[in-house]
Each structure stands twice: as structure tokens, then as C-alpha cells.
Amino acid sequence: MNVRAKVSSKGQVVIPKQIRDDLGIAEGSEVEFVPKAGGFFVQLVEDFDPRYPRVPAGEFLKHVVRIARPFPTDEEIEQAMLAEAARRYNATRD
């Protein structure tokens, strides 16, 4: 079945109702454009994508590394980098 739609000045296209109904596309649904033989294939993005499994917040947070002191400032990081660069430079001179 071929169905046509016009592109607006903003590059928007309205997906015809018949196709939305057939694909199960509702307001707020996400679609993906997949390159296919000189054109594009439009498909509904499922809630569950095996490439990006949903992880409960508690499962994610158990892997967060906690440190007892505050994160170093930009100046402290710069000083540490310069000290390490000087140490490596001096090591090649001995």
C-alpha cells in the first residue's frame, strides 16, 4: 500500500492515520528511520530495546563509587597533571 504525505516548511510529515493504526503509533510514540535501498523504513521504537536494557535505579546506584573527600578542583587537577608531567620528564633525563 502506498500512501503519500506532504513535508511542511519545518520538515515535518504527518503519518497518515491508517499507517499509525497499523503500526500502533500513538501520540508520544517514538519512531526510527532506518536507511533502506535508496529510501527509509519507518518503524515504531518499542519500549524495550535489547541494546539498552532498563535497569532499576537501585541496581545502577550500587555501582556508584563513593569517595570520602570532595572531588578535586580544576586547580588541584592541573597541579597534579603538571607534577606528573614533570616527574615523567625528569625520569627520562636520568
Rank of each mutant, 00 (worst) to 15 (best):
V64Y: 07
V45M: 09
Q18T: 13
F48D: 15
G24P: 00
K36G: 04
H63I: 01
N90M: 14
A83F: 07
V42D: 03
K62Q: 04
A26G: 05
A86P: 07
A83Y: 11
P53V: 10
Q43W: 10
D21N: 06
A57H: 13
D22Y: 14
D94T: 14
K17H: 15
V64R: 15
F60G: 00
D74S: 09
P53K: 03
E84H: 15
N90I: 08
G28E: 02
K10W: 13
P53A: 04
R54L: 09
G58Q: 06
F48K: 13
Y89V: 13
V7D: 01
R4Y: 08
D49A: 15
D22N: 05
A83H: 03
F33Y: 04
F33A: 03
D49F: 12
Q12D: 09
A83R: 15
P35H: 01
G58F: 08
A26S: 12
E75Y: 06
P50I: 04
V45Q: 15
D22P: 00
R51E: 11
Q18A: 15
R54F: 05
R66Q: 02
G24S: 03
I15E: 05
V14W: 02
R87A: 11
T73V: 13
R20Y: 00
F48E: 14
H63L: 14
R88Y: 09
I15V: 13
V34P: 02
Q12S: 08
R88T: 10
E76H: 08
A37Y: 11
P56H: 15
K10M: 10
P72E: 04
E78R: 10
F71D: 10
G38L: 01
H63T: 05
D47L: 04
I25M: 05
I25F: 05
L44F: 11
G38F: 05
P53Y: 02
G58M: 10
